[in-house]
Amino acid sequence: MSAAAIQSRHVLEAACRQVGLPAEGAEPIRIAGNAIWRLSVGIVARIGRPGGQAVGGRELAVARWLTEEGISTVRPAVTDRPVLVDGRPVTFWVELPPHRPGTAADIAGLLKQMHELVPPDALGLPPLEPLAKPRRRISEAGILTSDDRRWLQEQVDQLTAGFASLPASLPPRALHGDAWDGNVAVDADGTAYLLDLGNTCYGPPEWDLVSTVVKHLTTATVTAAEYEDFCATYGMDVTTWLGYPVLAGIRELRMVTFSLQIADEHPHARAEAQHRVDCLRGRKGPRPWTWTAVP
């Protein structure tokens, strides 16, 4: 078990003690920025990053709101607020029934439903700030050369200016914030569930649409047919919007800088992080590029 997993396990055990759940037999589902564990009692624990208590609380509130509005999503369990352990928020969720990964059309259908809702003020959704994380990650990344860091920082500045002057778009709505097919699960009855609500915010719906087309045009992990299904299901092809290049550039930069953050925590991801930087800088030829998933 990795050092990150061992540390995560300690946090899990302490959180389970606070809410009276057994940690024995818990199995890791994913150990990354957020650690996810499956407990033996039909509950999944999600451990956030230090200082993420507000995010954890918002996840729970958004899940309750979406459920009330008839959108299938993960459901909170045990407590309606995060448990705090060593500064890390831990939330508990009802385990989903057996399921398969979602498709591009599945995420489009859920986004269409979500974007039709008007979020209550009580949710306190923050405005979309898509470049805050990349700026911090670039500043903190340990593997970057000074030249790569300078270039990436310049990209952030250019995209920040572009985001501030986006052309007219769809009316702002509640956004999932990290909308791709990996954040959808579909059960045996065909019900699609929306997962991972930690980036929910308020802003232009086009932001939620860009992730899928970037996976099509940038990394070729979504086929042309799958992207056509996505557009048909949602009712819009975001590439026809004049603001698309800016949002696509931001999404690519976020994918690159996420790998930088992971590389500092997991040394085996360093080669992939540098590869993504090299792609963005034009050192690996034109899109689409082959990118390997990082933890």
Rank of each mutant, 00 (worst) to 15 (best):
I138G: 03
A179R: 03
A15Y: 00
W37Q: 02
K112V: 09
C231H: 10
A273M: 06
V294K: 00
P126N: 08
C279P: 02
D106H: 13
E265N: 07
V44D: 10
R135Y: 06
E24I: 11
L21V: 00
V213L: 09
Q158M: 12
L125S: 09
R276V: 06
P97W: 06
V184C: 07
V184E: 08
I36N: 11
V294G: 02
L197S: 01
V118M: 07
R150M: 11
P167W: 13
G33D: 13
S2H: 10
P101Y: 04
V41G: 06
Q18E: 15
G285H: 14
G52T: 05
D208V: 10
T73A: 12
I47P: 00
H115C: 11
T240N: 04
Y193M: 09
G51R: 10
M236Q: 11
L111I: 13
P130Y: 02
Q261T: 08
G285F: 13
P22C: 02
Q113E: 13
L123Y: 07
E13V: 03
A32H: 00
I71F: 04
E265S: 11
A108E: 09
R100P: 03
R58V: 01
P134G: 04
W289R: 05
K112W: 12
H115N: 12
T91I: 04
P98A: 14
A192W: 02
L209N: 07
N34P: 01
V85Q: 00
P204T: 12
T219C: 03
S165H: 14
F163E: 11
E226A: 15
L197H: 08
W289F: 13
E154H: 09
R46E: 01
E226M: 05
V19R: 01
A5P: 01
L260C: 08
L247I: 09
G51C: 07
S40G: 15
N34H: 13
A23S: 15
P28E: 05
A5M: 11
S259T: 13
G243K: 02
P130G: 09
L260V: 09
R46Q: 03
C279A: 13
A104L: 11
L175P: 01
D148W: 11
D148H: 15
E116Y: 02
T239M: 04
D208L: 12
D229N: 11
V184W: 03
N183A: 06
L12Y: 00
D196E: 09
V83Q: 01
K133Y: 04
T212D: 05
C16M: 09
Q18Y: 02
A271P: 04
E140Q: 13
E59D: 11
V19H: 02
E68D: 12
V11Q: 00
R135H: 08
K215N: 14
R135S: 14
A63N: 11
L128R: 06
I47Q: 03
V210F: 09
Q18K: 14
D187I: 01
W151C: 04
G52K: 02
P172L: 06
T218D: 12
P82G: 00
L96D: 02
L247T: 04
N183F: 08
E13Y: 00
A161G: 10
R81A: 14
E27R: 15
R46V: 00
F163A: 12
D148Q: 15
I143F: 05
Y227W: 14
M1A: 11
S165D: 15
A224M: 08
Q155R: 15
P295A: 12
L60F: 06
H275Q: 15
E129C: 05
S146F: 06
V214G: 01
D178N: 12
S211Y: 12
A108N: 10
